[in-house]
Computed example of a mutant assay.
Amino acid sequence: MDLNYSHDLIRILNLSSIAPNLEFLYLKDCLSLVEIPSLQNLSKLTELDLTGPNKIKDCPEIPCNIRILKLDGTGIEQLPSSIKHLSQLVILSLDRCTALESLPSSIGNLKRLEELYLSECSRLVTIPSSIGELKCLSKLKLLDLESCERLKSLPGLPSCLELLHAINCHSLESASISFNFLEHEDENEEAYKSESEDCKFLDFCNCVKLNKKVMEDVFEAHKLGQKVTLLMAGGEVPERMRYKNKGSSLSFKLDLRHVIAFSFCVVLRPYGEVDFPGFEVDFTCESGNRRERNAFNLFSDKDVANWNGYYGGPYPYLSDLSHVLLSFNGLRTRFDEECFVEASFCFNTDYYMDRPEIMECGVHPIYSRDKRINNEEEASSSSSLDLNLSLCLPASS
């Protein structure tokens, strides 16, 4: 039943008696719509679109088999606790619900939910901690919080999350990203080299109050092999990143034989407001007469536009604030002959006009790890090159 753009429609009849086999109900932009009867008895209903503007303030009773529920732009003030019974729900969209102040903790019971949209919910103050609890929202891939301007903190998030879109959350001060630290018992180094399906992107563009601890936590996650990309407002490379330099390039001696991954960082200063560009890193190493060259994708606007097909909108503009981009890259090629070589890294943008200036860059090589040695390295405050290289060698060397 498609009643989209029925601007004079005020209410609809009880559909369970006249259309018991209804599967889809579309009521988008029904400007005068005031109320909807209970839909709970529509046992075959799988998709409901109530996207506003409209005059609906209360969420109707929804059948348990619903898969897509769109309440964007409605005047609802809260979701009913009975939402926990929507065991088949895959997409829940609440964009522009400006009267919505909170979500029920029972939202953590939505075991099949993959996408949760909350952008421009201007009164939303908190996100329930239940969304990050073990076995809650175990399939959530995307969480969109763009322009939730009153949101001050984020709880722990589910480990399955792939894209956190939290740009322009101007009051956001803290975010727990403990899900990044899920360490597997299998220490297989192949995990560092493969393009993993569980790669995560945390987008905190223009979140001016966000604590830099988020950046430090992501950097620590890289050292554990977690494939995470972070964009957030800030002006410095993580403190514990081993090599850093002003500008867009740096060089150092690298233990090429044992390196398995890199953590990369750039600090960007836009020229005014520019669309966020793509970046890559040129990696060159020399040993004797041998010269190897490789390139890593640090970030691309296509990564966001097609992040597993979930986010397809235009990427937002950076403000005139400096931003930090932090990325993990596994090394696909293994080198068995050389050990210490001269390595050079140059960070490039694929934009030629109005491209942001790279103020600072950083590289942290991640070596094949012995847990005991890695723990010693984490505890050491020394930045000596010789000490750092000796700590990263395997125990058998």
Rank of each mutant, 00 (worst) to 15 (best):
D275T: 13
H184M: 11
F219I: 14
R150G: 05
L92K: 06
N308Y: 05
P270H: 11
P104M: 01
G309T: 11
V341D: 03
L15K: 04
L116D: 07
R293K: 08
N289G: 13
S138P: 00
I373F: 11
A99P: 00
Y310E: 06
D72E: 09
K111D: 07
K223S: 13
P270E: 12
D320V: 11
C64Y: 09
C121I: 02
C339E: 14
L389A: 08
D370N: 15
Q78I: 06
E173T: 12
I66D: 02
T46C: 06
G225W: 02
G313V: 11
D49P: 00
E239P: 00
L25R: 03
K152T: 14
K200D: 08
L116F: 05
F201H: 05
V218P: 09
K152D: 06
D144R: 07
R291M: 15
S106P: 01
F340P: 00
N308V: 06
E376F: 14
Y367T: 10
I10C: 03
K135M: 12
K246R: 10
L45Q: 03
H7Q: 13
P316R: 02
A395E: 12
N14D: 13
A175H: 00
E120Q: 09
H258R: 05
L318P: 00
A175N: 01
N348M: 07
E114R: 10
F201Q: 01
L118R: 05
C169N: 09
W307G: 04
L79I: 05
L48E: 10
R257T: 07
A343I: 06
N375L: 13
Y271D: 13
Y367W: 10
